[in-house]
Amino acid sequence: MEDMLSRYSSDGNGSYIFIRGHDGRNSSIAVVESNVDVTSDLQISFWYYMNGVGIGKLTLGKVENGAKTVLWEKQGRQGPSWIQASVNLPRGSYVISFSATARLIYGGDLAVDDVEIAPITTTTHAPTSTLPPSRKLPFACNFDLGPGACGMDLIPSIGNNVGWNITSKTFTHLGYTYIPGDSSGQKGNYLLLNNWNLGENGDAAQIVSPVLQNAGVACLSFKLYQAKISSGTLSVYQRLLPSMELVLLSEEAKKSSRTPSEWKTVMITLRNSKYFQIVLEGSYTGYLGSVIGVDDIKIENGDCKSIFFTSILKALNLSMK
């Protein structure tokens, strides 16, 4: 936990409250609460930290006369920094509470600090910073020219223990073939999540797209290889800009040893956002066979269902010629 929170509270000193993901069992919920008597215009402000692959949900709520109301809520990973939130409180006498859950037993720690109830203040926000140059859709990257040629960033785990390697080779270990090469079968490149230096269960590394620009619905597709049920999880996020909100879209994991080990196509319809980035985060399990392959990332205009059926029709037309 200390490594994940950089060993500091939100202001660099002092203490904070947190939950340990590995302590959670059977969807258990951790709660801290207090009675309040709000007779004027007040707000509650606090800092929160939610940066693990197994982060669940943090909820601020109130209970009044037996009725529960959600005042504020965040779910999933929110980024590698402390974030401040302020919520206006309704008038009345009630119980106010923070409740927290972990989604996984690893990487599920979250923290809260500097909780304060004070009169509502009007703040003037600084102008939104200028976004970096963006690319219009469609976007495609098969890594044959390297991730840099596509504008992709490969970000290793904290401590540089686990990361993404670009390779064209078959990945084998102790005589077992985990990944037979790239998704095309033509000796091209693909990205391989691998243990760099004493990686541990829960270490996560990211593939981050450049800033992309779109108007309307868009579809993300990519090829994914997970050799074993111990391969780990690939979490798919969309970072909405300029708000920087990180939205969990999907989690991919091999759930059965009976599922064939092969490249599969993953297709996900994205949230509407004029500017955004895609973040693919691979988590390392620490077990034998904890490797993940990613290849052939595409982001196109339109919803995934329409794109899928269009590709089927094209394939049928080609086969009939």
Rank of each mutant, 00 (worst) to 15 (best):
A215C: 08
F171H: 08
T310L: 09
P119R: 07
T285L: 05
V95M: 11
C304F: 01
L220Q: 00
K305Q: 10
R7Q: 12
S157W: 06
D114N: 15
S129A: 14
I83N: 01
L42E: 07
S45G: 15
H173V: 01
E252I: 04
Y8M: 09
S319H: 08
V53H: 13
S290K: 06
S243L: 09
L198P: 12
R239C: 11
G286E: 10
T172W: 07
G76E: 08
S99P: 02
C219A: 09
V279G: 09
A67Y: 05
Q43I: 08
D153F: 08
L212T: 06
V162E: 04
P260Y: 10
L280V: 07
V247E: 07
N201W: 12
D23G: 06
I105D: 14
L145F: 12
N65Q: 11
H173A: 04
S319K: 12
G79Q: 13
C304P: 02
T259C: 10
I44A: 05
S230Q: 04
S183L: 04
L248T: 01
E200L: 14
P119F: 14
F309G: 04
V31Y: 05
N165Q: 15
V247A: 09
T310A: 05
V162D: 07
D153Y: 05
N65M: 10
A218P: 04
S230E: 04
V112M: 01
K314A: 12
I17Q: 03
Q238N: 04
S27N: 15
S319I: 11
N195L: 05
I29G: 00
R135W: 02
K274L: 02
D11N: 15
V294I: 11
G14Y: 03
T130P: 04
T233C: 05
S243Y: 05
I17A: 07
L313Q: 11
H22G: 01
Y49C: 00
A140Q: 09
S250H: 04
D23M: 14
I96T: 01
A215K: 15
A67G: 00
K264N: 10
D11M: 13
S168Y: 09
S283N: 08
T285H: 02
I55A: 04
Y284S: 12
D41Y: 00
R91L: 14
G107M: 01
V31F: 04
R7T: 10
N88D: 08
K187T: 03
G24V: 15
N189F: 01
M320V: 13
E116N: 13
R77D: 11
E245R: 06
V236Q: 01
F143C: 00
Q75Y: 06
L246T: 05
T285R: 04
I19K: 00
I55Y: 02
W72N: 02
M1E: 12
W263R: 03
N189K: 11
Y16Q: 09
S28N: 14
V291S: 07
W82S: 06
P210E: 06
Y284V: 12
L5V: 15
T177M: 03
Y49Q: 02
